[in-house]
Amino acid sequence: MTLKDRIKDDLKQAMRDRDQPRIDALRMLAAAIQRREVDERITLDDAQTLSVIDKQIKQARESIEQYHKGGRADLVAKEQADLALWQAYLPQPLSDVEIDRLIADAVQATGAASVKDMGKIMAILKPKLQGRADMAQVGAKVRARLGG
């Protein structure tokens, strides 16, 4: 069963259970997936679906921060519930040790010597870490390793 199918099945189950907050969150996610498929005229595989989920999670985190600054506790709670639901579809996160090992392997594979080579390293790391690590933190680790 693909990740997209799992999301659809979970949406159907939420409808049967009449769980409106879960229905809303899953519909939003399904709509984001469908929007990308229509825009790019493709059928998303699991890796591409994960990138859509990642994007939704990132947007939710940014929204939580903005709502918190604005004093909107009700919207913060809703976004946090959506975020928790969407994170359940992500694969098991990698540990810092595993991430550091992948960074070291990528640096060695590319022969990177300075921050100028960061793009090459990130191109290797992104498919391996998609949905399993915060890419902003990975970027910071790579930059620190390269002396930037």
Rank of each mutant, 00 (worst) to 15 (best):
I33S: 05
R36W: 01
R36N: 02
E37Q: 04
V38H: 11
E40Q: 13
E40N: 14
E40T: 14
T43W: 13
T43Y: 12
L44S: 09
D45Y: 03
D45E: 05
D45C: 06
D46P: 09
D46N: 03
A47Q: 06
A47W: 08
Q48R: 05
L50G: 12
L50F: 10
L50W: 05
L50P: 12
S51L: 13
V52A: 00
I53H: 02
I53Q: 00
I53L: 00
D54P: 12
D54H: 11
D54G: 11
K55W: 14
Q56R: 10
I57R: 01
R61M: 15
S63R: 14
S63H: 13
I64R: 01
E65P: 12
Q66K: 13
Y67Q: 08
H68Q: 15
H68E: 15
H68S: 15
K69G: 06
K69Y: 04
K69P: 02
G71R: 00
G71K: 00
R72M: 03
R72V: 05
R72A: 04
A73Q: 11
D74Q: 13
L75F: 04
L75K: 02
V76L: 09
V76N: 05
A77W: 03
K78H: 06
K78M: 13
E79C: 04
E79R: 08
Q80Y: 14
Q80N: 07
D82L: 04
L83V: 03
A84W: 01
A84T: 02
A84L: 00
L85D: 06
L85R: 08
